[in-house]
């Protein structure tokens, strides 16, 4: 494992080696300038977008690409707004036509209140888009079986949610995320629900290959600082995972040696003394 760290520990998706395991969404930032600065300090290489109609009443509000072009990023447009596989495929094709790569984050919301993903439609869209040559990263529920099916369908990575999008509730089912990470043959990217740096570190410690965040950075009081916090947390979580956490034990085991304690300092107090203290 130390060798892996020395080799730079790259994450490979769709044949592309990435040195950053933090993916950053670009929505809801207070301004393009703040977004840009947050992107810089986050070190993120993969950034997500949505595909929307041009506002014909304000065409001078150019697409946000103008603020991030020439950054050498990998563009990961999403299919948000799609309610089924057909709509997701349509959005994916439109996104590819922009000429900025062929990665696509399949995102099909089944419920407007929770925005939880529709696993069935997500699977259908993934199958079709893989056949069309896309590098498909489906956002899905934290269901190990759904993730396995997506992997079988040819997904380049699977992206289970920690909690519903934008809630900041953290990882609601660490057991499931851990299981998905353990069984997956493709990178697992925890997407949605992350609220703070601690959640991002936890995702990595559970074995995730990467974390995708947007709202917790964009809506933080100080988005730029939070972008840096997320970067550090993802690195820390990754290292912690690679280094291997100790098993949990019920009782204490001293970190300092029991031998060589100078006379007179006393040993561990006896039960009777503590009770009287």
């Amino acid at each position: 494992m130390p060798q892996v760290i020395e080799n730079g520990d790259p994450l490979v998706i769709g044949g592309r080696a990435l040195s950053s395991r933090l993916f950053l969404g670009t929505g809801r930032f207070p301004s393009p300038a703040v977004l840009r600065e947050a992107l810089d300090v986050s070190g993120a290489e993969v950034i997500t977008f949505a595909v929307r109609r041009v506002n014909l009443d304000a065409v001078e509000d150019d697409s946000m690409l103008q603020h991030v072009e020439d950054g050498g990023y990998v563009y990961l447009p999403n299919t948000s707004g799609a309610g089924n596989a057909d709509e997701a495929v349509r959005i994916a094709r439109l996104a590819r036509e922009a000429g900025l790569g062929h990665w696509i984050k399949v995102e099909i919301a089944a419920d407007p209140r929770t925005l939880l993903p529709d696993a069935m439609e997500t699977l259908r869209a993934t199958e079709r888009l893989v056949k069309e040559g896309f590098v498909v990263l489906p956002y899905t529920s934290d269901d190990p079986v759904a993730c396995r099916r997506l992997e079988e369908a040819g997904a380049a990575a699977v992206m289970p949610g920690g909690a519903p999008i934008g809630t900041g509730l953290g990882i609601l089912n660490p057991y499931a995320i851990g299981l998905i990470a353990e069984q997956a043959g493709v990178p697992v990217i925890v997407d949605a629900g992350i609220g703070s740096a601690a959640d991002a570190a936890q995702a990595m410690e559970l074995g995730a290959a990467a974390v995708l965040v947007n709202t917790p950075v964009a809506k933080a009081r100080d988005p730029v600082s939070m972008a840096r916090a997320m970067k550090l947390a993802v690195e820390a979580g990754r290292l912690s995972w690679l280094a291997g956490r100790i098993p949990k034990k019920k009782y204490a085991s001293a970190s300092s040696p029991a031998e060589g304690i100078p006379h007179g300092f006393g040993a561990v107090p006896a039960e009777a003394e503590r009770a009287g203290a």
Binding site: G25, R52, V54, D62, L100, T215
Partner: peptide, 25 residues
């Protein structure tokens, strides 16, 4: 495709969508 815009006739009643990338997660 953009390269074909000039040669693509615009029939009456056509439904056209112009889309672009916006910020998103």
């Amino acid at each position: 495709p953009k390269a074909e815009w000039r040669t693509t006739a615009l029939p009456a009643g056509a439904t056209v969508e112009f889309v672009h990338f916006v910020g998103g997660g």
